[in-house]
Design a protein around this nucleic acid. Structure first.
Length: 637
RNA sequence: GCCGACGUAGCUCAACUGGCAGAGCAGCUGAUUUGUAAUCAGCAGGUUGCGGGUUCGAGUCCCACCGUCGGCUCCA
């Protein structure tokens, strides 16, 4: 039998006996330690097991854990080890699914008794045993019937359901390691001994197939790495991330608090308000430049308005209600109906378009108690909303302009973001044609701007599809912030009109959009992004003057006055404490500029500069530092 | 809303199997006059989330509720 010709990534060709397993090929032909660090193969562009037999000439690339696809196989095998350990320790536990995810893996179980955190330790110990046993992992294909019968005989009813839902033509494969066998498409590592470092992280409930109507399973999250040191790095990073948690920093820096008196209703303290106000100030400046006009609409409006807008039918379970003089009112969950009323109050001409009405609107939404999360997910929040009324022909240009505005804002803060296109949800208003037209319009702009985006099926607003902008928190969970929603519904519902060139009345098109999203959420993300060390323009206290002894207090106040006159947020720490103490406190409070003043500085009209991040920088003329501070504030660096 | 864990002073945390609620930081008072990340002393601070129950006795055990945390579902 002739050898097969294997073409490597760099174009080199190697020969191997037909049917050689990938792993053996790597060991024989490529040498080095590669067969040890390899996790999977890429054969003609498809990811395969390392045990995959090379029966044809092929392009082959070796994937290690440095490649996401290699790491995925590694983590996926880790999840099988988890499931094997659980089934050894807790007989009768049924298996759900167990995929690799970002930073690790999970497995869903239906145990006879729910797991406790102590169980995780036992399970982890058993996983270590399985790794030590170094069980070979073998792939085997089955017919649909075989697979179904097999899992039925084991009582694995969730697996049977999965098999039944697989498309007809999909080959069904299982992976076996020791006594454990799981329905799985693979690929997997060739043996369990390759998982050198693993750890279980936490325990949570998760509905079977993500549906609240299905049983709740027990999900165990874990992670694993090819080296112990990498696992330790990861655990250290988690610890570091906890220090950036906005809930912790918000408390430590005196920015906001949350109370039992109002779950999901945050209270902003003076220092938190300074930041909020700076964010709003920046927002107003930019929106004025971009041609927006600002409005303000009421917190509470009559029921009939919400019926007209469709919220009564589509959003009621998220709304709060009240009565005024025996009539039904609702607290607004969105700003759009109020915006509609403003629009309808006067006549509009096509010449006025695009008409951009912006509103810092505080909305209330009843969110499920289990979903509340610091400032990220609250029940009362302020949206930096705007409604853009326009001609159908203006849609693309306006969507593009908003995308540019979002980018302009996020850049100032140094945020990375990703974009999603959300399509028609189940509870939607309007015809399919309308939805398709609107979705296509949004997609067209994204394509034109060459933006990477993912499709978020069924996640649109009830009145239209949307482009969402997501930011990452300190644990790399993503949160939707900016959004651009195209709406053909509200103009219809509210009978909005404009007078066209032809003198006739026409229906305008509308965009709902936010840039920050919710100020609360954006603020939370900013706290985590900066780890509480805000850039100068946002810092609640920008400059603190630290007099060395009582006889320097007068001079310290003079220095502070110079800054205050230029609207710099400055404080003087005149307590009778040592310099080390005052500096430590300013440092802990993350004040960007510390100005130390003693005899030398007094004599020279100077200050000794210490910056939060750089430490002692020596003596400078006071005026020079003032200029520097003003410039840095201006540049928003 | 669902699953699990947790809830002690303003904050961070102690209190062995049920046996007198305690410390550090912050706060207040006083002393100290200080040169680049914590000066010393004293004082005050609590219906142990809320409500029931078991017990001679509950922070500790049981039940229900509220809240928080991690997820699921949902969403800015």
């Amino acid at each position: 039998m002739a050898d097969v010709v294997i073409t490597l990534k760099d174009g080199q060709e190697r020969r191997a006996p037909r049917g050689t397993r990938g792993l053996d090929f790597i060991r024989e032909e490529l040498g080095g330690g590669l067969h040890k660090s390899a996790a999977a193969l890429l054969v003609n562009g498809t990811v395969k097991d390392l045990t995959y037999p090379l029966t044809e000439d092929a392009q082959v690339e070796v994937l290690t854990c440095d490649d996401p696809r290699g790491l995925e196989a590694f983590r996926h095998t880790s999840s099988h080890i988890l499931a094997q350990a659980v089934q050894r320790l807790y007989k009768g536990t049924k298996l759900g699914i167990g995929p690799a995810i970002k930073d690790g893996y999970y497995y869903d179980f239906d145990p006879e008794v729910n797991f406790t955190p102590e169980d995780l330790e036992k399970i982890e110990a058993e996983m270590e045993n399985i790794v030590r046993e170094d069980l070979p992992v073998e792939r085997q294909e089955m017919s649909r019937q075989e697979a179904s019968d097999f899992f039925k005989s084991r009582g694995e009813l969730y697996k049977v359901e999965l098999i039944e839902d697989l498309p007809e033509d999909t080959p069904i494969s299982c992976y076996r390691q020791g006594e454990f066998i799981d329905l799985c498409a693979g690929p997997h590592l060739p043996s369990t001994g390759r998982v050198k470092a693993l750890s279980l992280l936490n325990l949570a409930g998760a509905y079977w197939r993500g549906s609240e109507k299905r049983p709740m399973l027990q999900r165990i999250y874990g992670t694993s790495f090819p080296k112990k040191a990498l696992l330790q790095d990861y655990l250290n990073r988690l610890e570091e991330a906890k220090k950036r948690d906005h809930r912790r920093l918000g408390q430590e820096l005196g920015l906001f608090t949350l109370h039992d008196a109002g779950p999901g209703f945050p209270l902003f303290h003076p220092k938190g308000m300074v930041i909020r106000n700076e964010l709003e100030k920046f927002w107003r400046e930019e929106h004025e430049k971009a041609g927006y006009q600002e409005i303000k609409t009421p917190l509470i409006l009559n029921r009939s308005l919400w019926e007209q807008s469709g919220h009564w039918d589509h959003f009621r379970e998220n709304m709060y209600f009240t009565k005024i003089d025996d009539a039904d009112y609702a607290v607004k969950p969105m700003n759009c109906p109020g915006g509609m009323l403003v629009y309808k109050s006067t006549m509009h001409s096509y010449r006025d378009f695009p008409l951009k009405l912006a509103e810092m609107g505080t909305v209330h939404r009843h969110e499920l108690s289990g979903t509340l999360h610091g400032l990220m997910r609250v029940r009362s929040f302020t949206q930096d909303d705007a409604h853009i009324f326009m001609l159908p022909s203006q849609i693309e240009a306006e969507v593009e302009a908003v995308i540019d505005l979002v980018d302009r804002f996020y850049r100032v803060f140094g945020f990375k973001y990703h974009v999603e296109l959300s399509t028609k949800p189940e509870k939607a208003m309007g015809s399919n044609e309308m939805w398709e037209r609107a979705t296509a319009a949004l997609e067209k702009v994204l394509v034109k701007k060459e933006m990477a985006y993912i499709i978020n099926e069924g996640d649109g607003a009830f009145y239209g599809p949307k482009i969402d902008f997501h930011l990452e928190d300190s644990l790399q969970r993503t949160w939707q912030c900016g959004t651009i929603q195209l709406d053909f519904q509200m103009p219809e519902k509210f009978d909005l009109t404009y007078v066209g060139e032809d003198g006739e009345k026409h229906r305008p098109v509308m965009i709902h959009r936010v840039i920050y999203g919710a100020i609360e959420r954006f603020f939370a993300l900013l706290i985590e992004h900066y780890g509480g060390a805000f850039p100068l323009w946002l810092a609640p206290v920008q400059v603190v003057v630290l007099p060395i002894t009582d006889r320097h207090h007068g001079y310290a106040r003079e220095v502070a006055r110079l800054f205050k006159d230029k609207r710099v947020r400055v404080e003087v720490d005149s307590r009778s404490e040592k310099m080390g103490y005052k500096i430590r406190e300013a440092q802990v409070n993350k004040v960007p500029y510390m100005l130390i003043v003693g005899d030398r500085e007094m004599a020279e009209d100077a200050v000794s500069l210490r910056k939060r991040a750089e430490g002692d920088l020596g003596s400078f003329k006071t005026r020079e530092i003032l200029e520097r501070v003003l410039q840095e504030i201006e540049e928003k660096k």
